[in-house]
Amino acid sequence: MYPISQIIGSLFLILGTAFSMLGILGMLRLPDVYTRLHATGKVSSLGAVFLLAAAIFLTPLSVGKGLVLIGLLLLATPAVSHAIASAAYRIGIPIKAGQRDDLRTRLPKIKPHE
């Protein structure tokens, strides 16, 4: 019989690995940088959150430090995704299979070529 903390930790480990793999699948399947950011910025970061939670249970990482790291990760992830998407748009990386683009009228100097 394993201690309960090991069972919870292993559960988090499995979830974290699953979401990280899903994020990589997104990297491979999605067509362009913006849609890939949805996969890496959300799915993979949730995987990282779960792996950190598993580390709290399974390794000597203290609870407080682990929670602070999760909090910083949650705050940083959307900002990083936004920064990459904004930079990609500004250098004119096209939106593949795009249905609409409200931003093109706003930034006429930058012409994303489809």
């Binding site: 997104g26 999605l30 795009g98």
Partner: peptide, 16 residues
């Protein structure tokens, strides 16, 4: 997003 990724048809209509 995970459900979209696992769908074989990849049902996305991206846009801004």
């Amino acid at each position: 997003v995970g459900r979209i990724l696992l769908d074989p048809r990849l049902p996305i209509k991206p846009g801004i």
